[in-house]
Amino acid sequence: MLNPMTLYPADPFALLRRVSEALNRASFSTAAPVFPAVNVWQNDEAAAIIAEVPGVEPQDIDISVKDDVLTIAGERRAPDLPEGASWQRRERAFGRFSRAIRLPFRVDSDLVEARFADGVLRIAVRRPEADRPRRIEIKAG
């Protein structure tokens, strides 16, 4: 038979504290998030890559293409602290980064255009005409 006293601890908030502590441990794991975060979409004519790069200057970003892979690389520099200051909390990562995105078609660098505004990098990659799907007409007979 179950003892009702073992189901309910003497401290009614103990369970809440344990759950909160577990969430804090899970929320602040040591695994670094992938940077930059990207969204990629495509249609028959092109692909678009939108990368969030807050705190990165456009001159600190390199975009390269080879075959069907587009690579975004660069560096997010740590701010200079005033003399005598020390970090109290440092959640944003700084340093070199690189993301390689495989596209569903070969990329011609002449067909790539990049724009940067407000910490968002937008890359448009037009699909070469020779690689675009074509509808094949069925002939009678």
Rank of each mutant, 00 (worst) to 15 (best):
I61V: 12
V69M: 07
I123T: 03
G119T: 02
D68R: 14
D108K: 00
D118A: 15
K66G: 01
E91R: 15
I101G: 06
E57I: 02
W87D: 12
D108Y: 01
E75R: 14
D67A: 15
I61F: 10
P54R: 04
A78C: 02
K66Y: 05
G95D: 11
A100M: 07
E83D: 14
D62Y: 04
V125R: 05
D60L: 04
W87N: 09
R90Y: 02
E75T: 05
P82C: 01
P54D: 07
V65C: 14
A117S: 15
S98P: 01
S109V: 02
V56P: 00
L70R: 01
A73F: 10
A114R: 03
R99Q: 12
I63K: 03
R127M: 08
A85T: 00
R96C: 00
A78M: 09
F97G: 00
D110E: 07
E113M: 08
V65D: 01
V120E: 10
E113P: 00
A114M: 04
D80R: 13
E83V: 06
I63H: 05
I123R: 00
D80N: 10
R92K: 14
P82F: 14
V107N: 02
P79C: 09
A124E: 12
Q59I: 06
R90Q: 15
L70W: 06
V56I: 10
V120N: 05
V120L: 07
V112C: 10
R90A: 03
I72D: 03
F94T: 01
G55H: 01
I123K: 04
E57D: 15
P79H: 14
D110N: 08
R127F: 13
R99F: 04
A100H: 11
G74W: 08
A100E: 14
A85E: 03
D60E: 04
L81C: 08
I63Y: 10
F105G: 02
S64H: 03
E113A: 13
S64M: 06
L111E: 08
V69T: 14
I72E: 03
W87L: 06
F105C: 03
R126Y: 09
L70V: 12
R127S: 05
P54W: 10
G119F: 11
A114W: 03
S86E: 15
P82E: 13
D62M: 07
E113W: 06
L81F: 13
V125Y: 13
F105T: 00
R77T: 11
R126L: 12
R77K: 15
E113H: 08
Q88D: 14
P54Q: 07
R77N: 11
I101E: 14
R96L: 05
L121K: 01
R99D: 04
I123G: 03
R122W: 12
A100G: 06
A73L: 01
P104D: 11
G55E: 11
I101D: 04
D62K: 12
S109F: 07
E91I: 12
P54V: 00
G119D: 07
A100T: 02
R77E: 09
G74M: 07
L81V: 02
F116R: 10
A78T: 05
